[in-house]
Simulated assay, not measured.
Amino acid sequence: MTAAERALTREDFRHEIAIARTATGAAHIVPLLEEGSTDRFDWYTMPHCTGGSFRPLLTAPGGPTAAGLRVLADVADGLVTLHERGIVHRDVYQENVLLHDGRGLITDLGAARRLDTPRGPAGRGSEVHWPLEYATSYNTATPAADVFSLAVLTYRYLCADIPRHGHSRLQTAPAALRPLLAAALAPEPKDRPEMSDLRRGLHAATSTAARPPAPPAENGDPVPTARSPPHLQPHTRTTHHPRSERTRTMNESRITEFLDAVDELHGEDDTVCATAHTSSVSAEGWTAAESAAPTTGSAA
């Protein structure tokens, strides 16, 4: 990797940190906890989400559930907030949706752009979850792109298939969601609904799926069921308690020690250096990261 490429990589990562900073405090967005910079790298930390990503839910036995729909509704909540703050995510798919205590959070803002600033190439190759406009206007993508991508993820979850021409499996989705999903998957951005519309539809579908049928009473009349208490939204940060400078210095020191250990074994490793600039590190993930790294003894 050349010096110019390293500088560009570092600039991209600093952009990601800045976007994460702007999004911090929003419900259903994985927040930035701490950030820092040294001569060799930039870094930031996020809370550890214990539930993994949304991917396993796409193939979970038993099919779609209210819990899965609730996660998708959470994602729509988070995206509405991002859009209100002038940010388009541009890469909404199952790997970038994390789960914690049964709720959904959006992560990985590395591809995001601010609405007032074009970013990236004009055209990008095709991906299942990307809208058609990425082929010619990726650098100026609008919130409608996130609507399309979330609709793709919702379709895959509810219909167990990738959206194709005609959306042939759409009939397997809840009836109330079908027109909304069909519109959200429209080829033209102007024909798609707002993210707030998709959010309302997903919340309504979640409530319907979570509502148990009323059991019959002895006289044949349905028995009223108790209403469930409202769910609190995790990770809604109303206050921020900065960690000590000692903790911040320790984080930077541990990253430096880790990179030094790799350099001693492999020399200047471009892949590792690039990763240090383009990947965030969870403060709670250090044990796993260090145990996975080779040691001098094992290398010998």
Results as ranks from 00 to 15, higher is better:
residue 124 R to N: 09
residue 133 E to T: 11
residue 86 G to P: 03
residue 24 T to Q: 11
residue 84 E to L: 12
residue 107 T to I: 07
residue 75 V to N: 00
residue 90 R to C: 03
residue 60 A to G: 05
residue 10 R to K: 13
residue 109 L to F: 13
residue 97 V to G: 01
residue 45 T to K: 03
residue 43 W to A: 01
residue 16 E to H: 07
residue 30 V to H: 02
residue 27 A to E: 12
residue 68 G to N: 03
residue 135 A to D: 08
residue 103 R to D: 03
residue 81 T to W: 10
residue 96 N to Y: 01
residue 34 E to H: 12
residue 41 F to G: 05
residue 116 D to M: 11
residue 43 W to N: 01
residue 137 S to I: 04
residue 27 A to N: 06
residue 54 F to V: 01
residue 70 R to N: 12
residue 80 V to E: 02
residue 13 F to C: 10
residue 14 R to G: 09
residue 82 L to D: 02
residue 95 E to F: 14
residue 20 A to I: 06
residue 46 M to I: 12
residue 10 R to T: 12
residue 133 E to H: 10
residue 114 R to A: 12
residue 52 G to R: 07
residue 48 H to P: 09
residue 79 L to S: 02
residue 52 G to A: 09
residue 62 G to L: 11
residue 81 T to Q: 15
residue 38 T to K: 11
residue 115 L to S: 05
residue 11 E to C: 13
residue 30 V to A: 10
residue 25 G to I: 07
residue 109 L to H: 01
residue 137 S to L: 10
residue 99 L to P: 02
residue 121 P to I: 05
residue 102 G to A: 08
residue 127 E to M: 15
residue 129 H to K: 08
residue 80 V to M: 04
residue 20 A to K: 07
residue 64 P to M: 07
residue 91 D to P: 05
residue 31 P to F: 03
residue 40 R to D: 15
residue 38 T to N: 08
residue 128 V to F: 12
residue 17 I to L: 07
residue 66 A to D: 09
residue 67 A to M: 09
residue 25 G to A: 06
residue 57 L to V: 10
residue 75 V to L: 08
residue 93 Y to I: 05
residue 76 A to F: 04
residue 100 H to W: 12
residue 110 G to R: 03
residue 117 T to Y: 11
residue 27 A to Y: 04
residue 131 P to I: 03
residue 139 N to C: 12
residue 81 T to V: 15
residue 105 L to I: 09
residue 85 R to W: 09
residue 74 D to L: 06
residue 98 L to G: 00
residue 138 Y to M: 04
residue 56 P to K: 06
residue 93 Y to Q: 15
residue 43 W to G: 00
residue 130 W to D: 14
residue 133 E to Q: 14
residue 121 P to A: 12
residue 32 L to C: 06
residue 46 M to C: 04
